[in-house]
């Protein structure tokens, strides 16, 4: 062994990569993709009983499509989570649900938000490592939903 280190994730992604991570995370937590951008926007207008707005720390959604409304909406058990890119370019999510307390909505939003970051980091690591000739020889997901990868690389 040579070193052990802890890295904090930074999400800098174009919208397609980010939305792919959202869909992967949503599917793993039992959410379904609800609608396209237009439907998501129209549903937002409706008065919701409970609504919590969260921001994903250390995130930046890069885009060259200025002015275009980019968002993705997922639902589970009457709760709707809408991911979008805010004015500063950060990823944000709005969690809404009838008859639910803000704390419960916040917990659901944070759980999904963390899963999105995990899926994003997982995919980025796989893409970057494969591009550099690294080989994933083992992959497991443990009971705490942590993803464990064993990777080899031969240098010559």
């Amino acid at each position: 062994m040579s070193a052990v280190c802890i890295l904090a994730p930074v999400v800098i992604a174009a919208w397609p990569a980010f939305s792919a991570a959202v869909m992967a995370a949503a599917a793993s937590l039992g959410y379904q993709v609800a609608a396209d951008a237009a439907a998501a926007k129209s549903s937002e207008v409706k008065k919701q009983a409970g609504q919590v707005q969260l921001e994903m720390a250390n995130s930046e959604i890069v885009t060259n499509q200025l002015g275009r409304d980019q968002r993705i909406q997922v639902t589970r058990d009457g709760v709707t989570v809408t991911f979008s890119r805010d004015a500063r370019g950060r990823a944000s999510l709005c969690v809404t649900g009838h008859g639910m307390k803000d704390a419960a909505l916040q917990a659901m939003g944070e759980e999904l938000s963390q899963r999105v970051v995990q899926k994003y980091v997982y995919q980025k690591l796989l893409d970057e490592m494969r591009a550099r000739g690294f080989v994933v020889v083992d992959e497991q997901t443990d009971a705490q939903h942590a993803i464990r990868l064993k990777v080899r690389h031969w240098e010559g």
Binding site: S2, A3, V4, C5, A8, Q114, F134, A146
Partner: peptide, 30 residues
């Protein structure tokens, strides 16, 4: 020739990454 490097990577449920680098001697692991 062709030394083998091994990496144990754990992606936590919050996306944080614990990385264990094996197979390097000296500062090559940096």
């Amino acid at each position: 020739t062709m030394p083998q490097r091994e990496f144990d990577i754990t992606i936590g449920k919050d996306g944080s990454v614990e990385l264990t680098v094996k197979g390097y001697k000296g500062k090559g692991c940096l």
